[in-house]
Simulated assay, not measured.
Amino acid sequence: MRTCNRVLGSALLVASLTLSGVIASQPACADDYPELSEDVGPVKAFRFGARAYLSGDFRYALKALEHAAKAGHAIAIWKLGKMYADGDGVDEDDQRAFDYFRQIANAHADDNPHSQMASVYSNAFVQLGNYYKAGIPGSQVEQNYGEAARMYMHAATYFGDADAQYELARMYLDGSGVPRDPAQSIRWLYSAAKKEHVAAQALLGDLLISGADVHARPVEGLKWLLIAKNKAGPADRDWVLSLHFKAMQATSADQQSAAETAANAWISSAAQ
């Protein structure tokens, strides 16, 4: 008898499934799922696939999501891209992931940036930017910083995507794919930091404290590092703590007190 193994996946998927009513209750653990005949529409096929995915039945999930994707179901297409990108329930295949994300980008580049689906569309652009930045060995997707910057720019400006804004900030800081412009980098970091993007908050704080590329503002910089430290998860915690430790060595007691007051005010305001 198959054991039910609930696999939550990404927060973006869970949010999307909640919006579509897929996980209003616990996912089913049935051994058998409905046959995916031609009369099963994309919405129903996606729901079947999502429930199977959340209960760990990747074989059926893949079949159902592909059924929905062929009819243009955007979340199904995006989830297939993520599965192949991460090797999640399937063999990792970056080219197939890239093709799924490109399908979303081509079809939904100009869709409503304030819709419930906007985060799915913008994330597809971010994923494409990541692939262009690194390239895909053995494929026709070569490393192309300019194209990566173009993907990030669209997601950052049209959809207001914080991940894209952070990646674009790093490119302006390094001069990769765009002219080097630390001031522009700071502007994008501020935009992402205000959306609670931990990496953007930490990098912004470090740059403002060091003053290497921009006018030093140690109190403002330490404020953002304290905010990042408060929110950092396991993936970010070590490097954020390292920057925080360095910042504490570079600032005075008065500056630290002022930064802590400002950070606490921001954290309290964000929680409301």
Rank of each mutant, 00 (worst) to 15 (best):
Q249R: 12
A64M: 04
F58H: 12
G129V: 06
A71E: 09
A258F: 07
Y172P: 09
Y84C: 03
W188Y: 15
A200P: 04
R2Q: 14
D206V: 05
Q201E: 15
G49N: 07
F46K: 02
K231L: 15
L80W: 06
Q143C: 00
Y190S: 07
L208Q: 13
E147D: 08
Q95K: 15
L80R: 01
S122V: 01
A262L: 11
A169C: 11
M248F: 02
H154V: 05
Y152A: 03
S122N: 04
V240D: 01
L173Q: 14
V22M: 04
Q95C: 05
Q249N: 12
M83K: 02
S37Y: 06
A253D: 13
L80S: 07
Y172V: 05
G138V: 02
D236Y: 12
A61W: 00
H244D: 07
G87R: 07
D57K: 13
A105H: 03
A52R: 04
W224C: 01
G72Q: 05
A263I: 09
A250Q: 15
T3H: 12
A11Q: 12
L208R: 11
P182A: 04
K229C: 07
S210W: 07
L173N: 11
A74D: 12
D86Q: 12
L207Y: 14
S269M: 11
D254K: 03
G21K: 03
A50P: 10
F245W: 03
V141T: 04
V43G: 09
A71K: 08
L222A: 10
A200D: 00
I227N: 00
S16Q: 10
V120E: 00
G41F: 04
V240Y: 01
A76E: 04
S242Q: 13
N112A: 10
M1A: 14
P182S: 09
N130S: 10
A250M: 13
P234G: 02
S139M: 02
H67T: 01
A134M: 08
I209P: 02
E35I: 02
G211P: 00
L128A: 09
G146F: 04
D94E: 13
